[in-house]
Design a binder for these strands. Sequence first.
DNA 1: TGTTAGCACTCGCTGTTGTTGAGTGCTAAC
DNA 2: GTTAGCACTCAACAACAGCGAGTGCTAACA
Lengths: 346, 346
Amino acid sequence: MDDRKWMILEAIVREYILTAEPVGSRTLSRRYDFGVSAATIRNEMSDLEDLGFLEQPHTSAGRIPSDKGYRTFVNSLLESGRKLNDFTTITQEVTSIYTSKTNQIHGLLEETTKMLSKYSHYTSISMSPDIQQTIFQHLQLIPLSSKQVVAILVTDSGIVHNQILTTPVTMDRKELGQISEFLNEKLQGKTMQEIDSNLMRELEADLISRYNTLSDIFRMLYTDLLGDVSRKLQQVFLDGTSYMMDQPEFADINKLKTVMSALEQRELLYNILNQNDQDMQITIGQENSQKEMQNCSIVSATYSVKGRPMGRIGILGPTRMEYGKVISLVQFVANILSKILSEQDE
Amino acid sequence: MDDRKWMILEAIVREYILTAEPVGSRTLSRRYDFGVSAATIRNEMSDLEDLGFLEQPHTSAGRIPSDKGYRTFVNSLLESGRKLNDFTTITQEVTSIYTSKTNQIHGLLEETTKMLSKYSHYTSISMSPDIQQTIFQHLQLIPLSSKQVVAILVTDSGIVHNQILTTPVTMDRKELGQISEFLNEKLQGKTMQEIDSNLMRELEADLISRYNTLSDIFRMLYTDLLGDVSRKLQQVFLDGTSYMMDQPEFADINKLKTVMSALEQRELLYNILNQNDQDMQITIGQENSQKEMQNCSIVSATYSVKGRPMGRIGILGPTRMEYGKVISLVQFVANILSKILSEQDE
DNA sequence: TGTTAGCACTCGCTGTTGTTGAGTGCTAAC
DNA sequence: GTTAGCACTCAACAACAGCGAGTGCTAACA
């Protein structure tokens, strides 16, 4: 793959991203100056097709990039390392939106999703922190009625979960206080991941020996709040789905429906956002494990609190996506979000 | 408007809802037996058009119902009072879905929305309770770090809100305990609506005189959690948006986009669901105050806890909607939901 | 050997035209 | 008041031609 081929491929990708029309050799030679004629470009394009970087919708049309073509383009973007797009101009705006928001992580993520859509004109997704990665901070049990207890779990980075537990027997305030005090002492500083069934069994035994009392609520706490319920509690935020309809590739209502239906399934969203756990993750077309999404690309990044990765935010669009712009934006917003979250946790 | 006209109008509405094709006089006379010829029907249809119940897409097409036509049809459905559609067959399924769910209202509403879509094949919406209508039950302040406090508000019917407050000065556990104990005593049993700025000012004075201490956190509690933040805290659940794409009236991607964009605006969803506060509310086409929604109809009903209306659930579709089925379903689900919510609150 | 001009060919897109058929309104007879 | 008959309308569909952007191939050129 020589230099000229590379330049032509890049030009075709850029041109197609811009126009959404198959790119022909003449158009290309008119708009770009490669110092060779259309005929030469034609030969190069034919080669590029043989190599799998381009595709031809039909014989007498121009070429469009294949997934492999986009992939090469994107890799080169990433390797080049130069500033792709400059979003520092909106720093002010973004931070002001963030700080105006309640300092609850869900509110921040909701705003994040909105902003990603607003600035990219693509559909965007955020995912609330994987609770397993967070650190236990505080547990509080509040009696609500004779048989109902609200359990409040606070982990670091401002995540608060609550759960109503209905106990078979009446619990008095003192018992509840004992249990929560006990757990607060034992679980302090542990990551939620470390709080597994083994640990809880130990603690249960310990609790019985200490207070000579055993309660169902202890087990309920584990199954409903502390245990591996992370997936259940992880929220997905979605915005800008209607931007999908601006894309000519989704003019066909059936293609559109395939994608839109997929976007309604939380589990599926979770999967497309977590294909691997690289910090910056770009999935192009067929690379996507979810077949409903194989006409789409997803650019996502992790956000973190004090260096610990917590969740992902991302942008979803057709494979013909403005990768340069989108990658910069996602990276930029993920950085600010991480900064805000880390600061506020102090 | 004589009996025969009425029968013809009803037949046209039913036929059009079924086929989505303009209904002609011959089709009608073939499928229904009015005992008169197509020509007579033709005359009647012409009259119905003059009266504003029907419309003609173009000269040589059949007629379709106007909004007024649908309205008449729907009113008669409601007045007739007879069982429109029987959904009792799915009672089992619905209750089992509900009881399998965590007894948190948000989880229930999420499931409700999913079910409404699943059984109706239309887009559906739910709205979490208007916190103003709920009754204060408990407030808890948990110190998180030296300057951060988690405020937990529990109101009746299992609604728990939490909010992280960042105080300018360090609060000790005792002070927090005093404030929450004080407020719990004073606010017990009040509806959130009653907790207004006047009451809070009184309480603030009272608190100062009692403990000779004043804290910013008191005011923050009001502005961020107790005060008129109901709209902010009210969540909207949406599901089945992709069913919109099955409707031939939205084959035009621009019409579709208008509606889908509207569905992304929470404020707007709130408005369309709360056009008035009748228990069962049906808004047809142009009756809708939101112009983006004037190609749509919305059928919604309140759900309540122990007779107190809390929020709404609803179904949204094209004006050519299966009103009979949808009305029954919404009513049915709202009833079960109310029952579950009222029981669980005991 | 790589590059280029020329040329025949392909094929989706667009616009025209004709046909079909469901539907209408009107009129006159029942 | 009802109905049969009839001329008329008009969207939808299919067939067809012309256009134009694009291709691959060939032969000539540096």
